[in-house]
């Protein structure tokens, strides 16, 4: 294997390690919210440090590959996509941390029997992230497109969760703090889905050279 290919493989491996950590963080934070599990929330907060370090490492590696190897074509698209996916993964890590913090806060508040679809939202978001990262690993543009198509479903579920929470707050003013925490968690989940969409867009650029951000191709 050429030295350059070894460095590309190193970049890919680091990104996969980060992907695994971020997916685990989303899963644990959603579960900590659902199961009211403090240890899971704490585990997410503890793991954030490694994700941040990986972001720095991947950025440094991508920058040095651009500067020293002067890649072109598929290699260039892979490295630029990896750098963007890296930033999106780090943001997802932050959002998982936000959800874990909300889960912690909820544990310190009186519990209310609010019936919202937040578990369904979390499942859909987790599957989007999984699909986006799979599309990266398999270099599969069709799978990346399926991620883009899923985003509307997440937005609709978020709206439904918000409506349910607002409705509950109107009827139970003492539950406002509890419901606001859940709203922030739902908002974080929806933002994670947006980052999954960004990752899928990077995969489309990497695999096909098309830029679909901001509907660029439609203009």
């Amino acid at each position: 294997m050429r030295h350059f290919d070894e460095l590309l493989e190193e970049l890919r491996a680091k990104l996969l390690e980060m992907s695994g950590l971020v997916q685990s963080a989303i899963h644990k934070s959603a579960l900590s919210l659902r199961e009211r599990d403090l240890s899971l929330a704490e585990s997410v907060l503890k793991g954030e440090c490694r994700i941040n370090q990986l972001e720095l490492d991947i950025d440094a590696l991508a920058t040095s590959l651009l500067a020293l190897e002067q890649p072109v074509a598929a290699d260039l698209r892979f490295i630029t996509a990896a750098a963007k996916i890296n930033n999106n993964l780090e943001r997802i890590g932050d959002l998982a941390q936000n959800i874990a913090e909300r889960a912690q806060a909820l544990l310190n508040e009186p519990r209310f029997d609010v019936r919202v679809d937040i578990s369904q939202l979390a499942d859909l978001v987790e599957s989007m992230v999984q699909m986006a990262l799979d599309s990266f690993v398999k270099k599969d543009p069709q799978q990346a497109r399926r991620v883009l198509f899923s985003d509307d479903g997440v937005d609709a579920l978020r709206d439904s969760v918000f409506a349910q929470l607002i409705d509950y707050m109107k009827k139970n003013s003492q539950a406002v703090e509890y419901c606001v925490d859940l709203m922030f968690a739902a908002r974080s989940l929806e933002r994670i889905a947006d980052h999954a969409t960004n990752i899928a867009e990077s995969v489309l650029f990497m695999t096909e050279g098309v830029d679909v951000r901001h509907h660029a191709h439609a203009h």
Binding site: F149, D151, D155, E190, R191, N198, H215
Partner: peptide
Amino acid sequence: MDPSSGDLAKA
């Protein structure tokens, strides 16, 4: 990414 990406699929 615009979260209100209703037209994205068509695009």
